[in-house]
């Protein structure tokens, strides 16, 4: 099994999806292990740190990928871009539903996470960033997460969010500025000192 997976390791997502569509049993596992951690992390951030809901979204997005596999046209779109778009839309739907049900649920991630002020570690910074991201408008949060955490390019983000690259630049610039302001108040707490 491991050897077979290794043999496929060099294959592109596109190729693996075609193999899956042709009935290859290994392709699904490799695609899952390759793509799901990324979209799960992304969904978790968009959903304000709610891992359980992010897992539902990831599973739903992968289900849609399995279903589209027979009709997949290689070379037209990147599998990861397509998947991020599906995840973005699913998260947007869930956030909309949430707003009507319980607006507080989004705003409160693991706020009690920070430890002692002088023992600031990466996970605390990540948690602080998540809090600041949660306060951003949804589209800004999406663009900033894709650009600065997932490492997507502006054209890729434009494709995922179905907007122009100019709109992406505007969203990321405004989002980043808002984060810089939100996190400035916690500069000392996060181990940067006042200067």
């Amino acid at each position: 099994m491991e050897m077979a997976l290794d043999a496929y390791a060099g294959a592109s997502d596109d190729t693996l999806l075609v193999l899956y569509g042709n009935g290859d049993p290994m392709a699904a596992e490799l695609l899952t292990r390759r793509l799901v951690p990324r979209v799960l992390g992304y969904a978790t951030r968009l959903l304000g740190g709610d891992r359980a809901e992010a897992e539902d979204v990831a599973q739903e997005a992968m289900l849609r990928l399995w279903k589209i596999a027979p009709d997949w046209r290689t070379g037209e779109a990147k599998v990861s871009t397509w998947l991020f778009r599906v995840v973005s839309n699913l998260c947007t739907d869930r956030l909309r539903k949430r707003r009507t049900v319980d607006i507080d649920a989004i705003e409160e991630p693991q706020d009690d996470a920070p430890g002692a002020v002088d023992r600031m570690i990466q996970s605390d910074r990540a948690a602080a960033l998540q809090q600041a991201l949660n306060a951003l408008p949804e589209r800004q949060r999406m663009a900033v997460t894709l650009r600065h955490i997932e490492g997507a390019t502006n054209p890729e983000i434009a494709e995922i969010m179905e907007i122009s690259t100019e709109a992406v630049e505007s969203l990321t610039a405004r989002g980043k500025k808002a984060l810089a302001v939100a996190l400035a108040g916690r500069r000392e707490e996060l181990g940067y000192g006042k200067d």
């Binding site: 596992e29 990324r38 289900l63 399995w66 596999a69 960033l129 955490i149």
Partner: peptide
């Protein structure tokens, strides 16, 4: 810091996704 956080997949999620994959694999 956010990038360095590794998203571990739970066994339950992986098996649920793979079960979906097997159920919808048209080629198979």
């Amino acid at each position: 810091a956010a990038r360095s956080e590794v998203t571990e997949l739970s066994a339950g999620l992986v098996s649920a996704i793979l079960a979906d994959a097997a159920a919808h694999q048209p080629g198979a």
